[in-house]
Simulated assay, not measured.
Amino acid sequence: MRVNLNFTNKGKVVIENFNNEELLEIFGRYINTLTKKYAVDVTVPVEANQAIVADGNFKVILSNVKCDVETFFKELGRDIKVPLKKRTDGKLENVFKIEVIE
């Protein structure tokens, strides 16, 4: 199952403060932490995420899904705000919306 995390307008503004490698590392770290809690395998295809800021989305591939995908990504959305807030001033709301592509 493929999933696109489409950044909201505020999310796009915030991720402009990061380079592609930083975003891959941040998302990878938080996804790995959550996969210890949720029964799902997540792959982050580096070749599909070469221009995260320009594309306005982050692509992942899920396999062995034995959890609620919406819940997994809602928690990721909450967790990912922590490192993103460090380079922005003000309140950060929803960073991305989930688009499931089966």
Rank of each mutant, 00 (worst) to 15 (best):
V3T: 04
N4Q: 10
N4Y: 13
L5A: 02
L5P: 00
N6V: 15
N6F: 11
T8D: 01
T8M: 07
T8I: 07
N9R: 10
N9Q: 10
N9T: 08
N9S: 10
N9I: 07
K10C: 08
G11V: 03
K12L: 12
V13Y: 07
V14Q: 00
V14K: 01
I15G: 00
E16C: 07
E16R: 13
N17T: 05
N19E: 14
N19V: 09
N20C: 04
N20R: 06
N20Y: 06
N20G: 03
L23D: 02
L23W: 06
L24C: 05
E25Y: 10
E25W: 08
E25G: 07
F27S: 01
F27T: 00
R29V: 06
R29N: 11
R29M: 09
Y30M: 05
Y30G: 02
I31Q: 00
I31R: 01
T33Q: 13
L34H: 04
L34R: 04
T35M: 09
T35Y: 08
K36R: 13
K37W: 11
K37S: 06
A39C: 12
V40M: 06
V40S: 03
D41Q: 13
T43Y: 09
P45G: 06
P45Y: 10
P45L: 09
E47A: 10
A48L: 15
Q50W: 07
V53R: 03
V53P: 02
A54Y: 13
D55V: 05
D55Y: 10
D55Q: 11
G56T: 04
N57F: 14
N57S: 14
F58P: 00
F58V: 00
F58I: 00
K59R: 14
K59Y: 13
V60H: 04
I61W: 11
L62P: 01
L62E: 03
S63D: 14
S63Y: 10
D68I: 11
V69Y: 12
V69K: 08
V69I: 15
E70Q: 15
T71F: 10
F72D: 02
F72W: 05
F73W: 09
F73K: 01
K74L: 11
E75K: 08
G77H: 06
G77R: 03
G77W: 06
D79S: 12
D79F: 12
I80D: 00
I80Q: 01
I80P: 00
V82P: 02
V82L: 13
L84E: 02
K85W: 07
K86G: 06
R87L: 08
R87I: 06
D89S: 14
G90C: 07
K91W: 14
L92R: 01
E93Y: 12
N94W: 07
N94Y: 09
N94V: 05
V95Q: 00
V95S: 02
V95I: 14
K97M: 12
K97V: 11
K97G: 08
